[in-house]
Write a protein that binds this DNA or RNA. Structure first.
Lengths: 366, 366
DNA sequence: TTGAAAGCGCTAACAC
DNA sequence: GTGTTAGCGCTTTCAA
């Protein structure tokens, strides 16, 4: 086996272009950075030379000299959850339009891993970061970034707590309020025993906020909040959890899940346990991934505007990287998407109502 | 608004570490590149100094000097399709383990866009590329890469045709064979009128190969292949397509879709048209994304080993980047995953069966 | 085993 | 408007 590197001709450089165009390297650089510094005629001939030679401006040389990479780092829990995959895709679009590149790393929902994964991005010398952390209120990573003066914008995380941490730039919905709206909807549908299925609180401050919204909705209507069913993310089977929760006499009539992914898993595993959604139990999610419309019954969920979260987050980061002190936070609107995964609850009057309920079921438009 | 850049202290450099450790920059460099060139004692003190100063080796300086970036480019159609999101996630894992970074770009399934998106990666000076193109047999992009001597490995694309193009390194399943197996399974279930729903052939050579497998299976059993239902990727509603196909007297009893995403969309849109899966029509997919197990009925599909495609692809690329001439292609095994989206066909005995079946069609709640 | 020196491709300060 | 020069952080001869 030959061990020569495949005909790797040395790439064309700025100097090659300069020579070809009969100008200095500085002039070529100006053409690509601020063409107004150069006469139209010169710029023209430089571009022609660059074109002819297939010149690509080398971002390493530029970054080294200019002290900025024009790259943003993106740190997200996992691409296995569509909401983050969509988000990354949308960030890439914004970044490309602005002439920035994107470096990505996944944490696998492991707070321990956040530091290591971020080091990868910091080593790449990204100019700033867009990130979702497990717990923004106590995140060594965020403190490190602040110590190093590296701009960042939180996505999905919603700074709470007191002091400086609350003022961190972020783009999210109002998680507490959104959850409250969804649970109120479930109550409006007649549900009284509503239980939350949540990703582990340690791995997600969003799940905690959403649980607060859940409690708020129930207590405001004089109903009793139940213990949340906490499950680690990245777990594949909810049957043990659900079997226990649904096998009791006071089983919930509705499950509010802290993400669409959990909701979809719950629906599958309820089905596998022989339970019908929404006949035996209603299920609601949170995220609003397009996928929710593909399942049967279609998922009732809180829609987060993921594309906006990405693009507004990127714009915010840009202004921070441009030197703005604090570019502010965005609290974006959520909406509810109603699908057939939620149906009216059985009348609470007597246990024998159960069969009757189906007849009175109001079908929610998809 | 203050316009100073946030306290961006200049980062620690190799020289800082060298000074702190009382050695030369060259020695520090050696510690991080090949510690065996340095005495254990020196290495130790260099590491200590680096640790104390929070030193991160700057990959730009290194890349500029060494002529390689230790970065790989990944070019995929879209992160909106879970199979590619998973693939990118898996590539990132392999790359990180090998000390490489990943640059990503999406083509949006647009062959026109492949060139522009790849330029982004080439400008980043990636050492090699992992990519899925619309049509590997006639791809200006691949020819450009070969002209420039830039190593690449195709993922999912399965080089066919003649000559050099056939010898391109790639990792995929045998698309034709896999499709044939699935269609044979449908035939074994009693289906005789099987129609393919395919992403547009212009956008996907995989879809074409799978159609060939479809035809092969049918002709081998003496059945007639039908015109494929071609639809652009990234389209959101298959109802027009399906309504037309299913509204005829000789409507298919099974649909074989060229991807899970299409299959899931088809199932949703059939449902919206009032048709039952698998009661009125069976549906099979291709990809094997975990999502297929979340829908109801669970999707029958061809499973591609996406994690293996990613990791084997990366290893292949590594050996190419290391200078191997042609590291070979991998044809990986597919498997069938059987779900309830496929059911036995209605008895083919008499045409008068049809109205009966329709009458018995249970309407799915919206 | 270590150090000195040159230079990868680029931009910015300064000169003209 | 344009050129000259210096140097960003690193690796790699070459010499010691």
């Amino acid at each position: 086996m030959t061990l020569r590197r495949a005909s790797a001709r040395p790439a064309t450089t700025l100097h090659d272009v300069a020579r070809q165009a009969g100008v200095s390297a500085a002039t070529v650089s100006r053409v690509f950075n601020d063409a107004s510094l150069v006469s139209a005629r010169t710029a023209q001939s430089v571009r022609a030379a660059a074109e002819a030679l297939g010149f690509r401006l080398n971002p390493m040389g530029r970054a080294l000299r200019a002290g900025q990479t024009r790259a943003v780092g993106v740190l997200l829990p996992t691409l296995l959850h569509p909401v983050f995959a969509h988000c990354l895709g949308a960030i890439e679009v914004s970044a490309r339009a602005a002439g920035h590149s994107v470096s990505f790393a996944a944490t696998g929902y492991d707070p321990q891993n956040e530091d290591q994964a971020s080091e990868l991005l910091l080593q790449q010398r990204v100019d700033g970061l867009l990130l979702t952390v497990a717990d923004a209120a106590r995140s060594p990573l965020l403190e490190k970034l602040e110590r190093e003066g590296k701009p960042f914008v939180l996505l999905y995380n919603q700074p709470s707590g007191r002091g400086r941490a609350r003022a961190r730039p972020s783009v999210s919905v109002d998680n507490r309020l959104a959850a409250r709206h969804m649970v109120e909807h479930l109550i409006d549908c007649g549900h009284r025993r509503i239980r939350m299925v949540a990703g582990s609180f340690r791995q997600s401050d969003r799940a905690r906020l959403r649980f607060n919204g859940y409690r708020e909705a129930l207590s405001q209507r004089g109903l009793q909040a139940l213990e949340p069913l906490e499950t680690p993310f990245m777990v594949g089977d909810l049957r043990p959890l659900l079997q226990d929760a649904m096998g009791r006499l006071d089983a919930p009539t509705a499950l509010f899940c802290s993400s669409d992914h959990l909701a979809l898993m719950a629906m599958r595993d309820l089905r596998r346990l022989g339970l019908n959604v929404p006949g035996d139990v209603s299920v609601a999610g949170f995220d609003g991934v397009p996928l929710g419309e593909l399942v049967n019954p279609e998922l009732t969920t809180v829609v987060q505007p993921t594309a906006d979260i990405a693009s507004i987050g990127f714009d915010l980061l840009r202004s921070l990287m441009g030197g703005e002190r604090f570019a502010g936070s965005s609290r974006l609107h959520h909406t509810l998407r109603l699908g057939a995964s939620v149906a009216p609850a059985p009348s609470p009057r007597s246990a024998t109502d159960r069969p009757v309920r189906a007849a009175s079921a109001r079908l929610v438009p998809p």
